[in-house]
């Protein structure tokens, strides 16, 4: 079923909306949240919560990119679950490593000019990523959005692992410099 048709089911408040969503995007969601949470039970719970949230949001929202929309919700729910469990370091093994790496991008607390809210921070990150070429964008997002491992990214993108690692390292550095230049306090 096409995404547009699935969305229509939500608008019609048909319970098939969830079934069809699960059929088409369930595997994707489970795999993604498994990487964050580290166990199937939590991943399953997260996916179920995602569907509930979708049901609440659609309507009135009518997402253009349905999978991206679902992914975003699932990811946020997974991160919140980890936070509640106070288990950042005990999340999926992939998450812990990515989380640690990303902390390298945190700006120094010196030269802080302004604090930004979450929305503004997202806009900054969006702008930052768009300044890169596609390859660097994909590598960065696969790693820190989708929590893919370096070998997985290398295999998907037909790149050497060394190159993936180097790209990530440099992008993290650039992000840090960018946030520092913006005088952003996180």
């Amino acid at each position: 079923m096409k995404d547009s048709e699935i969305i229509e089911l939500y608008f019609a408040r048909s319970e098939d909306a969830i079934t069809e969503t699960d059929k088409k995007h369930g595997a994707f969601c489970r795999a993604m949240t498994l990487g964050i949470l580290g166990n199937r039970e939590d991943s399953e719970e997260c996916v179920n919560d995602t569907y509930m949230r979708l049901w609440e949001l659609i309507p009135p929202q009518r997402p253009d990119r349905f999978r991206a929309f679902i992914s975003r919700i699932a990811r946020n729910i997974a991160l919140n679950m980890l936070e509640r469990m106070n288990a950042k370091k005990r999340g999926g093994r992939y998450f812990a490593a990515a989380y640690d790496e990303l902390s390298e991008s945190l700006p120094s607390s010196e030269n802080v000019e302004k604090s930004v809210d979450d929305k503004e921070l997202s806009i900054l990150l969006d702008r930052f990523l768009r300044s890169f070429d596609r390859e660097k964008q994909l590598i960065f997002l696969k790693r820190y959005w989708y929590l893919r491992t370096v070998p997985e990214i290398a295999a998907e993108m037909h790149l050497g692992e060394s190159k993936v690692k180097m790209s990530l390292h440099r992008t993290r550095e650039k992000l840090r410099e960018y946030l520092e230049k913006e005088g952003v306090q996180i």
Binding site: R67, S71, L79
Partner: peptide, 19 residues
Amino acid sequence: RLMKALGDIGADLIAKAAP
């Protein structure tokens, strides 16, 4: 915050990078 803020970037970027 950084990890969460990353979650709200543009949907087109998210879609592009979907594994």
